[in-house]
């Protein structure tokens, strides 16, 4: 009995010590250092597998369509039926695997978020913790997807360049769930981060994503940057509504505002391009996500007329979408 009691006490003592123990941080950092490459590698592989699974799914779908056509052409040739069925079953399996992979990738990201250290080291960026968000909220706010993560990856790739700018004020226009600006705030604790969104629900979500990751974010419900004074921001980032749509679909304040881009998918982007020269502080830099259909060369031309140089930071193909992140600086 005595033994048990003393063991319990000593465990409690240890736990107590551990809480204040500076070695805990070192230990955590060590563990993280050990785990992070594996989690990252896992994440990267899961991502690659997901992409190839998606491609496979598409190919199966098109094969399926072709087979259907052949089948019709052959006047319901009985031999093809079982193959079509097999293919459909196969497609379902791929979908299931895809979902499983997606879930595990989300979990990986969440784990990475949980292990977040406000990294003073400047070569990686943590993906913010997002498990606080109720999935129903994504009926009203754009859910972080490949484009959001491409923007984070672009900023991560440019961390050294960004820290050389010693940014004070950072702004994300149309921040949606807030993962990108929160990630930036985590990488640069010594900045003040701002975000705008035309959708109030997105502002509320951005603020809560930031606070769950201990980033102080100033959210304003506004159209682009229309109510900010000039020459304030050192970094501006924008993942615009880039989908090519009818012009009339553009201009909402609900979730359609997160994707409907109107003509060339550029109606909203072009409005911001004209504000950027005034909004950026001296030496400021602007990061913009685009897809091929937005005609990035035209965007570079517009910005050149405003006196900006441009550079493509990162490119990725997601399903049939060619996404890229460009940066503009004077």
């Amino acid at each position: 009995m005595d033994d048990t009691a003393s063991t319990t006490t000593s465990v409690e003592d240890n736990t107590g010590n551990l809480l204040d123990n500076p070695t805990r941080d070192t230990l955590a950092e060590g563990l993280l250092g050990l785990l992070k490459p594996t989690v990252d590698q896992l994440d990267e592989r899961v991502r690659a597998t997901r992409i190839s699974q998606l491609e496979l799914k598409q190919q199966i779908e098109s094969l399926n369509e072709e087979l259907q056509k052949v089948k019709e052409a052959l006047n319901n040739h009985p031999d093809l039926d079982p193959y079509v069925k097999k293919l459909i079953a196969c497609k379902h399996k791929v979908t299931v695997v895809l979902n499983v992979l997606q879930a595990s990738q989300n979990q990986n990201r969440a784990q990475a978020g949980l292990c977040l250290i406000r990294a003073a080291s400047t070569d990686t960026m943590e993906t913010p913790y997002q498990n606080h968000i109720d999935s129903k909220d994504f009926d009203h706010v754009y859910e972080p997807a490949e484009d959001s993560f491409l923007l984070i990856d672009a900023l991560e790739k440019d961390l050294e360049f960004l820290s050389s700018k010693k940014p004070i004020f950072c702004l994300e226009v149309g921040s949606g769930s807030g993962v990108v600006i929160t990630g930036l705030g985590m990488a640069f604790p010594q900045t003040i981060c701002f975000s705008t969104d035309i959708n109030l629900k997105a502002c509320v979500m951005s603020k809560s994503t930031a606070s769950h990751n201990r980033v102080a974010l100033e959210c304003v419900n506004m159209d682009l940057t229309s109510c900010f004074l000039d020459n304030k921001f050192d970094i501006i980032i924008f993942n615009p509504p880039y989908v090519v749509t009818e012009s009339s679909e553009c201009g909402g304040t609900d979730i359609t505002a997160s994707w409907a881009g109107g003509v060339k998918g550029r109606q909203v982007t072009d409005r911001l391009l004209n504000m950027i020269p005034k909004q950026l502080a001296e030496g400021g830099v602007f990061y913009l996500l685009l897809i091929k259909e937005n005609i990035p060369e035209e965007v570079a031309d517009i910005m050149m007329k405003h006196g900006f140089q441009s550079e493509t930071v990162i490119k990725r193909q997601v399903r049939n979408e060619h996404q890229l992140v460009m940066k503009f600086y004077r």
Binding site: I198, L200, C203, V204, K207, C219, V220, N221, M222, D223, S226, C227, T253
Partner: peptide, 9 residues
């Protein structure tokens, strides 16, 4: 409201 200014016009 809730710390978020509404500057929509």
């Amino acid at each position: 409201s809730k710390g978020i200014p509404n500057m929509l016009l």
